[in-house]
């Protein structure tokens, strides 16, 4: 695990909260929860070695591969 990346992402998350919270505090609870959930997902994802991890693109490629080969 790259600690520099973790520290960088955590700093980015703090900056995001600093920027958005003044506006968010006036909005309903649902908005706050969505914001926190999305930021958390982004923060967790950035911890992984994403380029070499199977993900949505792999899934879609697997689904459509037979059709794609038909083209070739």
């Amino acid at each position: 695990m790259k600690w520099g990346l973790v520290a960088g992402m955590s700093a980015l998350v703090c900056i995001l909260f600093a920027i958005e919270w003044p506006r968010l505090s006036r909005l309903p609870r649902r908005d706050k929860m969505t914001f926190i959930a999305l930021v958390f997902i982004g923060w967790v994802l950035s911890m992984f070695d994403l380029p070499n991890l199977p993900g949505p693109t792999t899934m879609i490629n697997e689904i459509f591969e037979p059709l794609g080969h038909y083209l070739e």
Binding site: L24, D31, L53
Partner: peptide, 20 residues
């Protein structure tokens, strides 16, 4: 507006995910 930046992080993550 508040979810624009968090979704931006997700978009950046998706642009790397499983594309070496």
């Amino acid at each position: 507006r508040p979810i624009v930046l968090p979704i931006g992080i997700l978009i950046a993550a998706l642009s790397f995910w499983s594309i070496p």
